[in-house]
Amino acid sequence: MSVVETKVPAGFVPVYTRPKSLSDKRFTYCPGCHHGIITRLVAEAIDELGIQERTVGVAPVGCAVFLYEFFRCDFAQAAHGRACAVATGIKRANPDLIVFTYQGDGDLAAIGTAETIHAANRGENITVIFVNNQIYGMTGGEMAPTTLPGMRTVTTPEGRDVRTTGYPLRISEMLAQLDGPTYITRQAVFDVRHVQMARKAILKAFRNQLEGKGFSLVEVVAACPTNLRIPPAEGNRWVKEQALKYFPLGDLKVRD
């Protein structure tokens, strides 16, 4: 379906090409949405490890609901928040498969908190990609458990008031307390350097599963320019200058 404008002239070699484990389908994310970068990084990890033929993804409810259309992999569509339970069922039924979930903050950190914590605590040998953009994007920009104090959303029109709606939930810190998980890290993709670090983290999270090391979760602090009502480039600055104040980057737990 895609038409490539320019022919590559002789004398050039590829530096970067679209990951092979992605399908031809256009992403359905909004312009400038960090989901697209993170989805692509997952595909790059699958390519690099050569596991496309044995990978099963679990798609969430939310902006990544169409994830199964973007990959050339088997996929299960899970109910809202239940991805880690579905992934547990798949992985336990067939441990030879490489199973990953890809979930937003509403899915993973609100309605699916219990499924996430208990899968982590059991040390399920799965890989979880957690996109924390501090908002419910798909439903129209409502407050998420990760919404920053004072941040305006359609359900906190005067800004999130922590006295009545609580504080941003730091799921990765919570999970890092547990004995079960192997690898818990928080990354971001607001510039190339951080994209490269996030890429390494996602690769490690998949490699851990291949090596049977247990539960790995990569949280990626992301921007939703559409619901923040700012241009995409400002979304990058929003993450760097606002979101990271509450969600500092780095490894929270690494067990080798």
């Binding site: 679990v58 299960a76 899970a78 109910a79 239940r82 339970a85 579905v86 992934a87 547990t88 069922g89 798949i90 992985k91 336990r92 039924a93 499924e115």
Partner: peptide
């Protein structure tokens, strides 16, 4: 939901 996964 684990049943859903195993059945899948």
């Amino acid at each position: 939901n684990m049943v859903y996964g195993a059945a899948a």
